[in-house]
Amino acid sequence: MTIWRRNRSWLWPALFIAPGIILFGIVIVGSSVQSLWISFFQWDGFDEMQWIGLGNYIEMLDDPQFYISLRNNIIWLAVFMLAPPLGLFFALLINQQIRGMRIVKSLFFMPLVMSQVAVGVVFTWFYDPSSGLLALFFEAMGATAPALLSDPRWVTLAVVFAALWPQVSFCVILFMAGLNNLDESQIEAARVDNAKGWKMLWYVILPQLRQVNFIAIAVTVIGALRSFDMISVMTSGGPFGSSNVLAYQMYSQSIQAYRFGYGAAIASVLFAIMVVFISWYLWRMLRMEKEGA
């Protein structure tokens, strides 16, 4: 009892934080580390695990599917970079205090609130070559609609553009918040100096949106690399693996092909790529926090 009383000032906080740390530590951190370990084994998920060292990674270097997935991840990343500028564009468009604009703003955010599965289903029909809306446009112009989702040349771009839809919405939200936190006096001063159009945006507004820009790019990069849902719903990585990405290849190697060791190795590569971005994000965020405090 006395021990408790003497130490309660730190025992309580330790007790408070323990459940969160234990759960997060085991399920999130522990699992991630364990996956790195599993990547050195050959394992079908049932029998004994067999140590094969770097075997999975060596196999990956000779796996054409790995390179296709990696290339697609890069395409996702590149196309997703359209989301921040498009988001800024829409945010500028709707940042007017006109009656009726509020509902317009809310509706702009709809794609973000819906699940990616729903977005995937919506776009699967949009692209449908026999009855989709896209086919209708092509017919109106007297052309035959391409079967985007079954054409290896177009499939990845088709899925990425669908995924861009909610991502742009996310960026609109971020930039709207940024635009509403601008320093009015700077804008007024610039207006007195007759700053207009691009110059105003480039020299006065964008420097003030640096923080928002950074967050928009960070969440977009991470979103692009994490893509899974849309691919699973729209193409299952097909046709013939041509729209696969590392996240989906990992899933199909493990759950469908029972090659857990190889799956873990693919996940580890994805993890390594993302850790670079996550560290960059954390470093900047913690630094900003120190400056702010």
Binding site: F24, V27, I28, V29, G30, S31, S32, Q34, S35, L36, I38, G45, I222, L225, R226, F228, L246, A247, M250, Y251, S254, F260, G263, A264, I266, A267, S268, L270, F271, M274, F277, I278, S279, Y281, L282
Partner: peptide
Amino acid sequence: GGNFLPFQIMMIP
């Protein structure tokens, strides 16, 4: 940081 990890790295464990 954990919040940004790809889900696949935790999937098997």
